[in-house]
């Protein structure tokens, strides 16, 4: 038996969400007294591959194929399902990021395994295999019991912090031949989003809404993001009127995030907006209107004009950053 984690990389390095998934998977392996194995792209360099040992992988098995460089739900599903059979996996863990959402359900159905789509806890195995997940767009939690022998877990990004040790993993190339008919998509164009930090992975997010009056006023928001090393986000109307790119739109109809810190500037806090951000660990709201609903969901609030508060806050943050280095 083993716990198998699907690893994903970007520019030759494992993604942060992957390190979280490996760490999480290693905890489950310890719970079940079994081996933690990671499936990774065989074209990565050896040092990077074995570095997954730091986060708890005992072994890294690799599969190599040129056409696996791009997400292809069918081909990825094939590779993960085949690998899971070879390593006799009883639990398969994927980060429930965009890739995980494309692949986890297919893997689960192929293996007829129960799936928790968006886990935020380790399994409780005292009575079944019970995992907590956020439901109703962050307004509640549900505990799902997986009833099948093989289990698939999609882990919500940013719900576990990967802690490194100095262990290394053994790396072993696996012989998985992907039949040509398993490749289903041809990539015509790849469009990278403008921000340097991916919104779903970001630990700190600076977000602004219609209170900012116009796209020309986003300089101070981007400045705050740069000072903090944060990603930028926005409310829906702001994306709809093209003040900001759609990829930044968070909420019910946009992206759901759960950063450590969400700073909302000139956003009223409509329920549809909150749906995408209410799982943030700490929320700061800056708004001229002391009645703005967002304050009810916030940890820290400043009633004030963004055009006065934000520049001052940026100076204070710069001062703090300079002192802390």
């Amino acid at each position: 038996m083993s716990v198998l984690i699907f690893a994903e990389s970007n520019n030759g390095k494992f993604k942060k969400s992957t390190l979280e998934a490996v760490y999480y998977g290693s905890k489950i392996a310890a719970q079940l007294n079994t081996e933690c194995i990671t499936l990774a792209d065989g074209s990565l360099d050896a040092a990077e591959l074995s570095s997954l040992g730091k986060f708890g992988a005992a072994k890294v098995v690799t599969v190599k194929h040129d056409n696996l460089q791009h997400l292809d739900a069918k081909a990825y599903t094939y590779v993960i399902a085949e690998t899971s059979k070879k390593v006799n996996a009883s639990v398969i863990v994927l980060s429930y990021n965009v890739t995980g959402k494309a692949v986890a359900a297919n893997v689960a159905a192929k293996l007829k395994a129960g799936l928790v789509a968006g886990a935020i806890s380790l399994p409780d195995t005292t009575n079944g295999f019970v995992i907590k997940k956020s439901v109703f767009s962050g307004k509640a939690f549900a505990y799902f019991n997986i009833k099948t022998a093989t289990k698939v877990i999609g882990l919500t990004p940013n719900s576990f912090q990967a802690i490194a040790t100095d262990a290394t993993a053994i790396v072993e190339a696996l012989d998985v031949n992907v039949p040509a008919d398993q490749f289903s998509v041809i990539v015509k164009e790849t469009i990278k989003s403008s921000g340097t930090i991916s919104l779903t992975e970001a630990e700190l997010v600076v977000s602004a809404g219609r209170g900012l009056k116009g796209p020309e006023n986003w300089g101070m928001i981007e400045e705050m993001a740069t000072i903090l090393g944060a990603a930028t986000a926005c409310s829906r109307p702001v994306a709809d009127i093209h003040w900001r790119p759609h990829g930044e739109h968070v909420g019910q109809t946009g992206i759901t995030i759960r950063p450590n810190l969400y700073i909302a500037i000139g956003i009223s806090g409509a329920i549809q907006h909150l749906a995408g951000v209410n799982q943030s660990k700490t929320i700061v709201v800056i708004n001229t209107d002391k009645e703005a609903p967002f304050f009810k969901a916030a940890d820290y609030g400043i009633v004030g004009d963004a055009f006065e508060v934000v520049p001052k806050l940026n100076e204070a943050l710069k001062k703090y950053k300079a002192a802390s280095h």
Partner: peptide, 13 residues
């Protein structure tokens, strides 16, 4: 293949 055994509301801020 799965079942919900329990729900929970988030702690109030």
């Amino acid at each position: 293949l799965t079942e919900i055994v329990k729900y929970e509301l988030p702690a109030e801020k």
